[in-house]
């Protein structure tokens, strides 16, 4: 069942991703991206990570998508072309992408990742997930957490400054 579910989700994710990358209309691209992220969020739930899944929906499907749409609307509707002004860009991208893919796949299928002994089972991870993640965040990862909050603040200020009509 879960394999089937994974298969369906994977296909949807791949298709939406492909459509997003190749979209001629920006709004379509944004919608495809949201669909893709939603699919991945469901996948998170199957991976017993409900907290991350919720955050994914809230942040990506909520905030970021709105932001993208907002900008797209602000800049106006436009048709996107697929002209390639650089000779060899596509060729190089293709070759390199192929190389990358081969190496990733080889790595993926030859490596056998070790399973750490965390003392937890899959069920335990899934249950009280948010509580456990929260505990980790506020104990072991407190410093990165605080750093991230500062980063967000800076990003906020930076965005305001950049988007202002006249720079300081």
């Amino acid at each position: 069942m879960s394999l089937l579910l994974f298969g369906i989700l994977a296909v949807i994710a791949l298709i939406t991703a492909a459509l997003m990358v190749t979209a001629r209309n920006l709004v379509h691209a944004v919608l495809m991206m949201v669909a893709n992220f939603g699919t991945v969020a469901i996948m998170y739930i199957t991976l017993s990570a409900p907290f991350v899944a919720v955050v994914q929906v809230a942040v990506y499907a909520g905030a970021i998508m709105v932001l993208f749409l907002f900008v797209v609307m602000l800049l106006g509707e436009q048709q996107l072309s697929f002209d390639e002004p650089f000779a060899g860009q596509r060729m190089a991208a293709g070759v390199l992408g192929l190389l990358l893919a081969i190496m990733l796949l080889v790595t993926l299928f030859t490596a056998s990742p070790a399973v750490l002994q965390t003392g937890l089972t899959a069920e335990q991870i899934g249950r009280e997930n948010a509580q456990r993640v929260g505990e980790l965040l506020y104990t072991q990862y407190l410093l990165p957490f605080e750093a991230t909050s500062i980063l967000l603040l800076i990003a906020m200020v930076g965005a305001v400054v950049l988007a202002k009509r006249r720079l300081l």
């Binding site: 991976l47 017993s48 990570a49 907290f51 991350v52 955050v55 990742p113 070790a114 399973v115 750490l116 965390t118 937890l120 089972t121 899959a122 335990q124 991870i125 997930n129 456990r132 993640v133 980790l136 965040l137 990862y141 990165p144 957490f145 991230t148």
Partner: peptide
Amino acid sequence: FARHQNGLDGQVFVFF
């Protein structure tokens, strides 16, 4: 991988 290793650190990382 977090699921694979029965850990939570991967999820925390995703959060970041």
